[in-house]
Design a binder for these strands. Structure first.
Lengths: 132, 132
DNA sequence: CACTTGTTTAGAATCATTATAAACTACATA
DNA sequence: TATGTAGTTTATAATGATTCTAAACAAGTG
């Protein structure tokens, strides 16, 4: 299985559940956005056995910590994650409550002129809200 | 009272509670960021009577709808609001979990090159995450 | 195989937020 | 000033996402 090494190299044991979650998350042509609930549904549809919700939370957080997933900063009652961990941005359609990718090349370079003492910039994320 | 007209003009009745919340929110030199809990504390410290938590939620949402407050898009277990409704951005200090204003002039112009059919841009918000 | 440590799990607990519905109030109109 | 009504406030219950718990289980090492 192609994810066994990836997990081992990250210090995560390649359990059945983690491997199955990897398949659901990463065995797709396109990257995508999801909430834990949506992922839970997707898992139910794609695999036969049940994976506990607690495990899905644990795994998503573990993957995020390892850099395989990114949280998307947006105000919603549910947390959104992104399987696309490259540097990019998002449209958020306020009416449909849907996220749309905005590639880095679709946004001109962003220049942060202010500096904060003793801190360095980890990421710069742009959220473009859309209305009709 | 200076907020009576402001509220009436927005179609909001100037109740005692709303006027007191206006004082706590807007009678300050500087704009600030807050969560509902923090605002609740501030209200407790600054006024004598009690305002129900439900009223604080209602009022903050009413003020947001009227454009007197802005939600800050960030992933946190609590929702952050901003009394500064001008177009500006934020640093987020991951270690201290604190927001810092980033004036529009501190960020170079942002060019969104991609268009979405039938949608127009309502806002462009930049979140700069800081680490040590 | 045996041991240790990491992982999964169901269910309980937590906590922010929203809903409910009864009491109350602003304010227009008589 | 009194009255009606629509908007507000309130305490409390309900909701729902997320985290915690602690027991059962599985992976990896020797």
């Amino acid at each position: 299985m192609k994810y066994i090494e990836k997990l081992r190299n990250s210090g995560l044991r390649p359990t059945k559940q983690r491997l199955q979650i990897c398949e659901v998350l990463f065995d797709t042509e396109k990257t995508f956005h999801f909430t834990i609930n949506e992922l839970n549904q997707k898992i139910k549809n794609q695999i036969n056995n049940k994976i506990s919700l607690a495990t899905i939370y644990n795994t998503v957080h573990a993957f995020e910590k390892k850099g395989y997933l990114k949280q998307i900063p947006i105000n919603s009652n549910q947390t959104y994650f992104d399987t696309n961990v490259s540097h990019h941005h998002h449209f958020y359609d306020l009416k449909d409550e849907k996220l749309i990718d905005l590639e880095n090349s679709d946004v001109g370079p962003i220049n942060i002129l202010k500096k904060i003492n003793g801190k360095k910039i980890k990421s710069v994320e742009v959220l473009v809200k859309l209305e009709d």
